[in-house]
Amino acid sequence: MVIIHSFTPFCVWPFVACVCNVGWQGTGLRSQKFRKVWVLQVPFGVNFGRLVRKKRGIEGLSQQDLAALAFGNVGGKAKISQIENGRIHSPHQKTIDSLVIALEISDAELSECYAPIKLDEHEPIQGPFFHPVDPQIFCDKISGRRLQFALDVANRVELKKFALIAAKENVDFLEIGDPVFQKYGMGIIRDVKNYAPGIPIVAEFASSDWIEQQIQLAANSGADIVQVIGLSNEKRISRAIDSARKHKVGISVAILSHENIAKLMAESEAYGADMVAIIRNLDSSNIFIDIMEILKSLPADFTIPLAISGGFTATQVALALDQRWNVVIVGSSILNSPTPADTIRRIKRILRT
């Protein structure tokens, strides 16, 4: 039997999930075993945005550079940002053509943007290490300063290598994001938990359009926390938090640096989010300065735990210690380090000062 659900009616192209019972021969007392596979029809624009961001990174272009190359003027930077964040589900054909030419996107790469993705729905893992749904446990976990290591690698061998390093160096949180889920499915969360037992896993999603389903799949695969980008209004924040509570995972509301940060922080706190994360896109030469200015401008009375992200190096983490925040999210400076374990140790020493 195939059950088809239409998600997010406010989308131009609704997400469609087919839940199929797929059987295979088992052993022992039960001759048949079954698993569920979610087939998710993601809007073309979301997949195209991910491809544009990936190709832009390979070419070493900023969003402003790409706008000038594709559209002939830097004023198109805002459109590039919207596309990369999946906010334009059906880009105009002229826009697609311009970006395809500018980034030399092949027909094969473009065709993959129309393909559905499959995500295994595992049985819930019993007794995850960390349930931040309990406010006291969450507060205890982030007392002081903490390190969240973003595993932004789409290679399983590298993923295992860095997860093992993270386990040995006892990082506080491990983050897995959409690019990894796209390639390996949500089941990769379980693999990482096996590589790094005892470290809370943060599942980050770049879109909130089908967030209830994402949270359910992440929780069933063993995630401890979900971090969601795109919760741009009270309705979406409320939906996401309700879903996180239902599936007993913590939730961090990720706020992009160009959004109304003070307003979204207040709404997130009012609805009971466990944390907010301020995310700065890595397309500016002044990322660190921008993050510092944002932190200085925050209301003095906010109490919700705060994470910050923006391509931090160990030196920049040290320079940020005089601002209010709880968790620093670090990815590339560890992943690109010739001695990643040493870099983790250095950051942790800084956080203890």
Rank of each mutant, 00 (worst) to 15 (best):
Val2Gln: 08
Ile3Gln: 12
Val19Pro: 01
Cys20Tyr: 14
Thr27His: 03
Phe34His: 14
Lys36Trp: 15
Val37Arg: 12
Trp38His: 09
Val39Lys: 13
Pro43Thr: 02
Asn47Ala: 08
Gly49Phe: 03
Arg53Gly: 02
Lys54Thr: 08
Lys54Ile: 11
Glu59Gln: 00
Gly60Ala: 00
Ala70Gln: 04
Gln82Met: 10
Glu84Arg: 02
Pro91Cys: 03
Lys94Phe: 07
Thr95Asp: 08
Ile96Met: 02
Val100Pro: 00
Ile105Met: 02
Glu109Gln: 11
Glu109Ser: 02
Ser111Trp: 04
Ile125Trp: 13
Asp134Ile: 15
Gln136Thr: 10
Gln136Cys: 12
Asp140Tyr: 14
Lys141Thr: 03
Leu147Ala: 10
Lys161Gln: 11
Leu164Ser: 02
Ala166Gln: 12
Ala167Tyr: 15
Leu174Pro: 00
Glu175Lys: 09
Asp178Arg: 14
Gly185His: 03
Arg190His: 14
Tyr195His: 09
Ile199Met: 06
Val202Cys: 05
Val202Ala: 08
Glu204His: 12
Ser207Leu: 13
Ser208Ile: 06
Ile211Tyr: 11
Glu212Ile: 11
Ile215Gly: 10
Ala219Asn: 04
Gly222Lys: 05
Val226Trp: 05
Ser232Cys: 09
Ser232Asp: 09
Ser232Ala: 13
Asn233Phe: 14
Ala240Met: 05
Asp242Val: 09
Arg245Met: 07
Val253Cys: 07
Glu259Ser: 05
Asn260Arg: 06
Ser268Ala: 13
Tyr271Asp: 10
Gly272Gln: 10
Ala273Arg: 03
Ile279Trp: 12
Asn281Lys: 09
Ile289Ser: 00
Asp290Ile: 12
Glu293Asn: 14
Ile294Thr: 07
Lys296Gly: 11
Asp301Val: 07
Ile308Val: 09
Ile308Arg: 00
Ile308Phe: 00
Ser309Tyr: 04
Gly310Lys: 06
Thr313Asp: 00
Leu319Ile: 04
Leu321Ile: 04
Gln323Arg: 11
Arg324Pro: 01
Asn326Glu: 11
Val327Cys: 05
Val330Ala: 11
Ser332Tyr: 12
Pro338Val: 14
Ala341Arg: 06
Arg349His: 15
